[in-house]
Amino acid sequence: MQPMSLLITTCVLFVGTHLLMSHPLRAGLASRLGERGFQIVYSIVAIATFILVVQAWRGMPPEPPLWPVGDGLWALASLIVLFASILFVGSLVGNPALAAPGAEKAAQAAPRGVFAITRHPMMWGFALWALAHVMVMPTPGQIVLSATIAFLALAGSAGQDVKKARLMGDAWRGWAARTSFVPFARQVGGAAPWADAMPRAHALLGGIILWLAASWAHGALGYMVAGVWRWVG
């Protein structure tokens, strides 16, 4: 199989198993395996298919970039990754979308910080991370990989809206009515003040630390030097 065909095949397998096990197959598998057993199987399948994707991506031959990448594009991509990092860290606290105790109580709170930006900050963080990588590594292989990650994040978020409405009922529907799927949609539409969307301290500090650490590791692991480290040191 050609390297690009293999990459596309593994990406389809990765996305397909995620979506099938998260939605149409979830109830049946969970009833047979139990919730804990289902989570173990789900994790094994997710990790295994992701490893296949990474191996296929690493097996791609060198490809010329589809457009020139200069400092301006690197700076913009780095800022996007910083914003994505803040969304991700902020999503770890008080997120009704997470499968954690207290989700319904969290859904009763007024949306603030990253949740005033979007009710799916974690998934938008992944999608924006994927976008930034295409911006600075515009090769066919990277585009396929990033598109896969972005699609899974956003399609998964849309499916999560449906699933959470079924599981949490009015609690989720009320949360959805007070938040937006698309980042900053409520602020742009005048339904919410911009001040509500200011990320809280833990999201800002944690996001900056994650951004600095991840971009430093990018170069330390032998990949392209990323983030602020391109201009420091």
Rank of each mutant, 00 (worst) to 15 (best):
I117G: 04
V225C: 07
L29Q: 13
G169N: 10
G59E: 06
L145E: 10
A153W: 06
W211T: 07
G102H: 08
F50L: 15
P183N: 08
G16A: 12
L13K: 02
R173P: 06
G90I: 06
Y42G: 08
R58L: 07
Y42I: 05
L204F: 03
W231T: 10
G207S: 08
G125W: 01
A191W: 02
L82M: 07
W57G: 09
I209T: 14
H23T: 10
R230V: 15
Q142Y: 00
S91G: 03
G189W: 02
S146I: 02
I86D: 01
I208K: 05
G34F: 01
L210G: 09
R32E: 08
M122F: 03
A176C: 09
W57V: 03
A185Y: 10
R200S: 02
G34E: 15
G159W: 01
W67P: 12
A110N: 12
A195D: 00
A155H: 07
L13F: 15
L87V: 05
R230A: 09
P183Q: 06
A197G: 06
L29D: 12
M21N: 13
S180G: 13
F184L: 12
L87G: 01
L152I: 13
P101T: 01
A165P: 11
V114A: 06
L167K: 10
F151S: 02
T10C: 14
P64N: 07
G102A: 12
A48H: 08
V182C: 08
R32P: 14
S180H: 10
T118H: 10
D161V: 03
A75T: 08
W231H: 02
A185T: 05
R173S: 00
Q142P: 03
I8G: 11
Q160Y: 06
M4N: 06
Q2N: 13
L76N: 01
S31W: 00
G70I: 04
M135Q: 05
F83K: 00
I44S: 09
Y42V: 05
M137N: 09
F126G: 02
F14W: 10
P24K: 12
M135T: 03
G222H: 12
F50I: 02
I51C: 07
P140W: 06
T139P: 10
A100T: 05
V162F: 04
F184M: 05
L167H: 14
R166E: 15
G141L: 12
G190A: 12
G125S: 10
P64G: 02
H18K: 11
P183R: 00
I143W: 05
A197S: 14
A171Q: 10
G227L: 01
A195I: 00
V225N: 06
R36T: 04
G113T: 02
W172Q: 13
G159D: 09
G227M: 01
E63W: 12
V89Y: 14
G219R: 04
R32W: 02
D161P: 11
A106C: 04
R58V: 10
G206D: 12
I40V: 14
V69W: 03
F38A: 15
G190I: 00
P65V: 11
S5Q: 14
G156F: 14
F50T: 14
Q187K: 04
G70C: 06
S22Y: 13
V15M: 03
L210Y: 03
P24R: 11
I208P: 07
H133P: 08
I86A: 04
R26K: 13
A185S: 12
E35K: 03
V12P: 09
H23W: 14
S215W: 00
I149G: 00
G189A: 14
G156C: 11
I40L: 09
F88T: 09
L66V: 12
A191S: 11
